[in-house]
Simulated scan of single mutants.
Amino acid sequence: MGLKGKMIGQTEIKGAGGDVFHDIISRRPHHLTNMSPVKVKGFTLINGGLGTVGSVICWNYTHEGKEKIGKQIIEDVDEVKQSVRFKMIEGDLMELYKSFIITYHVDKEGDYNLVTWTLEYEKLNENTPHPGTLLDFFLHMVEDIEAHHLKEA
């Protein structure tokens, strides 16, 4: 098994939830602290603008019961595909991985919306775990956003 890997996970989000999800992640990520407070503890825009390529973002989050931090740069935003690609540049993940890229996109067909997360990574060594629990983190965060949105609707 090599050091490079790719993990993909999908989850459905109901109704217009795909539009809401993309809007929150790309333009209103600071709302995640209210929508998914167990996972997302804080958000800081370091440089640039929300949803803008080249912007640098810092996250405080809880993963596997531990407080963590991650700094990322937005590499790509596609409004048509409702996708954003983030490259990790500092933080806890960079202590385990040489490179780590997080991408999501929303597929829509009528009332059916599917959020797909893709994690592309290169482990520092063979002992570094695959990021399966982090993929679960993102999939469950979608459920938190959906539950919050449906409660408000």
Rank of each mutant, 00 (worst) to 15 (best):
G15M: 07
H105Q: 06
K87H: 07
H105A: 02
K68W: 13
T62Y: 02
Y112R: 06
Q82S: 14
S26R: 07
F43V: 12
H31N: 15
E120D: 14
K68S: 15
V77R: 07
A153F: 03
W117K: 05
F43C: 07
I46L: 15
K108P: 04
D111C: 08
T33D: 04
I25K: 11
G42D: 00
G49D: 10
H148Y: 14
Y104K: 03
E120R: 12
I13C: 09
L45H: 11
D136S: 10
I57Q: 05
E75T: 07
L124V: 09
F138N: 03
N127E: 11
G49S: 13
W117R: 08
T52G: 11
E152L: 14
E95G: 15
N60D: 13
A153L: 09
I24R: 09
D111N: 13
V84W: 00
E143F: 01
K98L: 12
H31K: 15
Q10R: 05
N113M: 02
P129F: 07
G17V: 04
M141F: 01
I89A: 09
T62E: 13
R28C: 02
E75P: 07
T103P: 11
K108C: 10
G91K: 10
G5A: 03
V84Y: 04
L96C: 08
T33F: 04
D107V: 05
K39Q: 07
K4A: 08
F43G: 05
V53W: 07
L32A: 04
Y104E: 02
I57H: 04
R27D: 03
G110H: 13
E109C: 05
D111H: 09
K123E: 00
G2W: 01
Y61E: 06
D76Y: 10
D111M: 13
L139I: 11
Q82L: 11
L135H: 02
Y112S: 04
L114F: 06
L139W: 05
S83H: 00
K71W: 00
P129G: 05
G132M: 10
H22Q: 01
G132S: 09
G54P: 11
I89Y: 05
H31Q: 15
L139R: 07
G48W: 03
V56R: 09
W59C: 01
E126K: 13
L96A: 01
T118E: 14
N60I: 10
G65Y: 03
E109K: 12
I145W: 01
E120N: 14
V80F: 10
E122R: 12
I13D: 06
M35R: 05
D111T: 09
G110K: 12
R27K: 14
K4Q: 07
H30G: 00
E64V: 12
L134C: 01
L3G: 12
S36M: 03
